[in-house]
């Protein structure tokens, strides 16, 4: 039986963000933007959605005088991602 995929993660950009954060301790906004190819505006909106859902934490800090945004996954985010991948396996027939 197919389980419903988390709509928050079943979106290319948000899934890309979560995949990067799953494999890292933390990642800078610039790194995520460069690797996803997203525009800064769209990425900001999607990051806010993930933050509101409690999947990620966003810390604003400074690199010298330049402001930087650091993103980190939360335990809730890890759980949601693992569940998403598990449900995904059902769709493509992986046991």
């Amino acid at each position: 039986m197919y389980k419903e995929l988390d709509p928050l993660l079943h979106s290319q950009l948000r899934l890309a963000v979560m995949s990067i954060l799953i494999s890292t301790e933390e990642a800078d906004f610039v790194f995520i933007r460069e690797n996803t190819g997203a525009t800064a505006g769209n990425l900001s909106v999607q990051l806010d959605k993930l933050k509101e859902a409690g999947y990620i934490e966003i810390t604003k800090t400074f690199r010298g005088k330049i402001p930087r945004t650091i993103c980190k996954k939360t335990p809730k985010g890890i759980e949601a991602f693992e569940k998403y991948v598990e449900n995904l396996k059902g769709y493509i027939g992986v046991k």
Partner: peptide
Amino acid sequence: MNEHFTEKESLELIGKMINSAKN
């Protein structure tokens, strides 16, 4: 990025993004 994508594309995207931070 496209909002509508298949489950297979979804898995490919996960793999690609995880690799981007590797090494």
